[in-house]
Amino acid sequence: MKILVPVKRVIDYSVKARVKSDQSGVELNNVKMSINPFDEIAIEEAIRLKEAGTASEVIAVSIGIEKTQETLRTALAMGADRAILINATDSVDVDIEPLAVAKLLAKVTAEEAPGMVILGKQAIDNDMNATGQMLSALLGWSQVTYASKIEVDGDTLNVTREVDDGLQNITAKMPAVVTADLRLNEPRYVKLPNIMKAKKKPLEMKTPEDYGIDVSPRLAVQSVVEPPARAAGIKVESVTELLDKLKTEAEVLS
């Protein structure tokens, strides 16, 4: 079984996004970019399934600017076997929407015929939390979101999902589209020799036209602004002072 893992190049999670003064978006030039953290978890899971003998090949795929090759090299260094980059834009400021990404991924899936696609649950830039669900709908495959544990059992996937009131166990028929939650695994560190090896692994370049998919956006961004700032607070000296302030000043305790 092949596993396809879509990975997105996003602003590094440790960087605080800064809004551009013309309100057109967030500053992405000269900002540290990394693989979306959830996608790192997705890659790790795919590699573990390969190490366990369940999967035969792990293919990383990304849709974005040419520089996204770096992100794919990270996935290859972690252990993916090969990569596909669909070069869909020249501008770091253009975010290809989940619907268009899902349509491209559906085409790649049709070509590669994997048994499973593992995505991240959410891209930490647009915070959409949508692509996996959309891909599952387009393919008509089992939809398995927010997975914190997966186990392949023949044609069935046993899954634990993170939901609002705790954990939910489900079974899903294969093939399945899975989205990874934070506690699915802890991704490995990439070792230096593997970074060197990754440079030699195949990375195929494609365009949306190769797949006949129109990636033009459905949503038009009118403005991007900073959230309202909170007024500066104070430090209190003691628990007594804290409780007093909460009662008499903030009036949130009686």
Partner: peptide, 13 residues
């Protein structure tokens, strides 16, 4: 909200 609420986006569809 986008970027963990560090930016607020207005979109039309």
């Amino acid at each position: 909200p986008i970027y963990a609420g560090n930016a607020i986006q207005t979109v039309t569809t």
